[in-house]
């Protein structure tokens, strides 16, 4: 994988395009990613288990699975969304911020819209 790439690297440097060059270096076993994947599955199946087994009253159940959901979101952001990585300007943070803004808007307005509680049934 780490074979020499002199020619294109040289040309890229000359043109001021270093940022396009892939950074190739040895990586160890991706422990964090495996942990993040396993943890996400665990949290998903955990909330599924809680809901199907009716272990607690609905209000508490909702609170618990919401907590699990927030935990899972945080886990995925931390492990998979490159939130802590940057070389040069952290371009990935701008779309992430936008995502938060829009997701909060969607959720908040959905709750507002669906508060009328007059399902078709």
């Amino acid at each position: 994988m780490a074979e020499p790439r002199t020619a294109p690297e040289q040309s890229a440097r000359e043109e001021g395009l270093e940022f396009l060059e892939p950074r190739v270096h040895g990586e160890g076993f991706p422990m964090a990613q495996v942990f993040g994947y396993g943890g996400s599955l665990l949290l998903t199946f955990g909330s599924f288990f809680l809901v199907t087994r009716h272990l607690m009253p609905p209000v508490i159940l909702l609170a618990v699975i919401l907590t699990l959901a927030i935990g899972q979101a945080a886990l995925q952001l931390g492990v998979f969304m490159h939130i802590r990585e940057s070389r040069g300007p952290a371009w990935q943070l701008m779309p992430l911020g936008l995502a938060f803004f829009i997701a909060l808007g969607m959720i908040g307005m959905s709750i507002w819209i669906m508060m009328f509680k007059a399902g078709v049934s």
Binding site: M106, S110, I113, M114, G119, V120, S121
Partner: peptide
């Protein structure tokens, strides 16, 4: 679904989101 506490309008909300 119509029965069992289903909420068809929630689909409509999600779909148009």
């Amino acid at each position: 679904t119509l029965g069992h506490g289903g909420m068809p309008m929630m689909y409509v909300n999600l779909f148009w989101l």
